[in-house]
């Protein structure tokens, strides 16, 4: 009896939440084209074209690709190519090669969809000049040893350069070799958090994407100091070869930089009903996604 009383009290006190499907009158929505481009400097252009749909027409795993679009690529204001749909790559491709400093426009039309356009300036190739690893320089908040990485690269003189840097840590959890991204720590004022929060020495930054802008080091050699868990920086032997942690530096456009920040922000908040909604940045007029070119430089940490 006593147990039943307690169970009844539990039911009342914890007040099981009730969930039900409801009908929501969603405001009228016009689907738009989605352009995504991840072309690297020196490679030929490749873009994927998709479409957005009204939220209530969502279907899990629904293919939103658009394969019957007309995709016109312009170098400056001059038509350079009509991009072809490549079934294998599931993308529109062109023979035009993205050249450092050039300006490219794209115009996409598809049946029953409004025209979408975008423009991008190709950033220059910025290689990693040097990486220095200094072992066990400090302890993190949990008492774990951290290595310091000093990464140097030469920032172009042009104003407004943006970078996304990744640190691929060598990590083994079950004797199976794989890559993983650990927390990265820094107090560098040029580094921005995805969440636009202030960063201190204990802020865990996602090692997959460290966002950097050159407002404080325009046109000079930048030395970026990062702190990484020491255990994650140790090389690992696979089939007799040593595999080292790796740093990748992407020199990106401002549009791509903003797109990636808001895209990651939105992903982090997905499913959190208490977070304020995030609209992902786009540089596509009358559409979504990002049309951009980036440069890519990689170096092992030894």
């Amino acid at each position: 009896m006593y147990k039943n009383i307690v169970l009844a009290l539990s039911a009342i006190v914890f007040l099981a939440s009730c969930e039900k499907e409801i009908t929501v009158k969603v405001p009228a929505y016009t689907p738009k084209l989605v352009i995504n481009s991840n072309t690297e400097v020196g490679d030929s252009f490749e873009v994927t074209i998709g479409k957005s749909v009204e939220i209530l027409k969502y279907k899990a795993n629904k293919d939103l690709s658009v394969i019957d679009a007309t995709v016109m690529l312009y170098k400056g204001s001059v038509v350079a190519d009509t991009m072809k749909y490549n079934m294998e790559k599931r993308a529109y491709t062109s023979d035009i090669v993205a050249r450092d400093g050039d300006v490219y426009n794209i115009k996409v039309n598809a049946p029953n969809m409004p025209e979408a356009t975008s423009v991008t300036n190709v950033p220059s190739f910025v290689p990693i000049a040097d990486i220095q690893r200094i072992k066990k320089t400090r302890l993190d908040a949990e008492g774990q040893q951290q290595d310091e990485l000093r990464i140097r690269f030469n920032d172009p003189a042009s104003r407004g350069d943006y970078y996304i840097l990744s640190v691929y840590s060598n990590y083994d959890s079950s004797n199976v070799y794989n890559y993983s991204y650990g927390c990265i720590y820094t107090v560098d004022a040029s580094v921005e958090s995805v969440y636009d929060e202030s960063i201190d020495q204990n802020t865990c930054l996602d090692g997959n994407a460290i966002f950097i802008r050159d407002a404080l080091f325009n046109g000079i050699t930048k030395e970026l100091r990062l702190f990484v868990n020491s255990a994650l920086m140790e090389p690992y032997e696979v089939d007799g070869d040593m595999v080292y942690p790796k740093v990748i530096l992407r020199h990106v456009t401002e549009d791509y930089f903003k797109f990636q920040k808001t895209y990651r922000f939105a992903s982090a908040n997905a499913g959190n009903p208490f977070a304020e909604p995030t609209n992902v940045y786009t540089n596509v007029n009358n559409g979504y996604g990002v049309f951009s070119v980036l440069s890519y430089s990689a170096k092992d940490v030894k």
Partner: peptide, 11 residues
Amino acid sequence: ITLPIGYYNGP
């Protein structure tokens, strides 16, 4: 409240 009205696939 703010509601989603559409969606698309990211990169």
